[in-house]
Design a protein around this nucleic acid. Structure first.
Lengths: 240, 240
DNA sequence: CCGTTAAGGTCTACAGCGTTGGCATAAGGA
DNA sequence: TCCTTATGCCAACGCTGTAGACCTTAACGG
């Protein structure tokens, strides 16, 4: 690696590249996101990124510790966007629901990027901010610490897990275009009733359902359970 | 690619390689799984696989349409193993629970492989078999077709999504060894209470919890909801 | 038992990848 | 204006996936 990676805050000399662009972490991450969207998951390479930036490929290594470091920064960016698009109302269940959907939506807006990052815990600032926010909502609503941590754990993992899964489906759709899209109506609907009676009987319903995300349903289920827990806690506290 | 990929069933001439091994899809998939486990996610390359098999790297292309085809076959194998390790009891909720845990466990037994495959729907035989089994359990329990499809959708996506997420955590642990493992006790526990009061207050609980999977809890939540649905359906049917 | 055929293993080659160390240059403090 | 050094550029290394030509030998018909 060229000597050392200088964190964005400490950069002083902003020399433009031969082609005139002035680089920054922000610009590189945004360009990478655009490339992922336009050229697919395998389309993000150091050389291509350099070309898109108007800079030598190796320059990127002055800003990130390898493409892997860039990947983590991209994940952080998606988390930040989720947080920025979200506003609290004070009603804990509604707030958690909208925050979960915001995270999910932010990742799905860049499926290829989501696939690369959703299963990685980075521990970077905006990610920690999300965690702090969730715990704050729960503790503010009256959950005990143990319950709050339990709900938080399930909540954040659920959001990330479905982000990754649904992003995978979307990414494949984008790349294979229509080839996989109708698999539920093609492959599955053709199975004979003798060998696969249950799939055959529900084929039409399957085709309708499988192209949507199951996330909202599962999220509501989880929040409903949490609400029950909270009510039980309050009852115990009120009449001991 | 060498002419054509011949499906396993139609192979006739089983010529041993120069080094004496007799190849088959099964042997290649098993070897690939072992390599993923031993050398990590980036350790599976055509050349290394060839070496491990005692064959020329390009031979693999006679069995699979590129490494991507091999990847799909690996996913299929993991699904098959889940199914083989599972036995039905006739009690729908218990059966679904154990099947979900079996799928999750099968993937987690090969975290690196799971990461490569968990977010891909292959439409291959064993995967379809799992789908048929789930739908059979639900419809046998008395769910209406629409409800059955709804629960099935959430159930299978949940299992795969958590498999991918937890596999990601495991894979990183395996590779970075201890560096990330204690992140919850290192990074998060060091945050000052002024800026992150909620994380600070629950740091100890977080550290205990975040290294386990939230899957069983979320799965039970989903199954509980399904049970409620079923009871409502029955009540409606009994007293219209 | 032999001859023919083609399945399938091997060789060679190519274009592209991530990454690095050395070098050149210009930005900004003095 | 000069000096320091951050930062962009260049060339190179060892690796990758995979295509196509080639060669060997298993399997089958007679």
């Amino acid at each position: 690696m060229p000597k050392k990676v200088v964190p964005e805050g400490e950069r002083r000399r902003r020399r433009p590249t031969r082609q005139g662009t002035v680089l920054s972490e922000k610009l590189i991450v945004e360009t990478a996101l655009r490339m992922l969207r336009e050229h697919g998951g395998a389309g993000l390479t150091a050389r291509r990124l350099g070309a898109a930036l108007g800079a030598d490929p190796s320059t990127v290594y002055r800003y990130f510790a390898g493409l892997d470091g860039l990947t983590r920064a991209i994940g952080e960016e998606l988390m930040g966007r989720a947080l920025d698009s979200w506003t609290a109302t004070g009603e804990w269940r509604a707030d958690l629901r909208s925050l979960g959907l915001a995270v999910h939506a932010s990742y799905l807006a860049h499926p290829q990027a989501a696939l690369l990052t959703a299963s990685r815990v980075t521990g970077r600032p905006r990610e920690i901010e999300v965690d702090e926010t969730i715990l704050g909502i729960l503790r503010g609503a009256g959950f005990g610490d143990a319950d709050a941590v339990g709900v938080y754990h399930a909540f954040i993992d659920l959001a990330l897990a479905f982000a990754a899964l649904d992003a995978g489906a979307l990414a494949i759709k984008d790349e294979v275009r229509e080839a996989d899209e109708h698999m539920w109506t093609s492959t599955y609907a053709r199975l004979p009733a003798e060998t696969h009676p249950h799939i055959a009987a529900t084929a039409r319903l399957l085709a309708e359902r499988m192209n949507d995300s199951a996330y909202p349903v599962v999220l509501d289920t989880l929040l409903g359970r949490a609400e029950g827990q909270l009510a039980a806690t309050r009852k115990r506290a009120a009449a001991p």
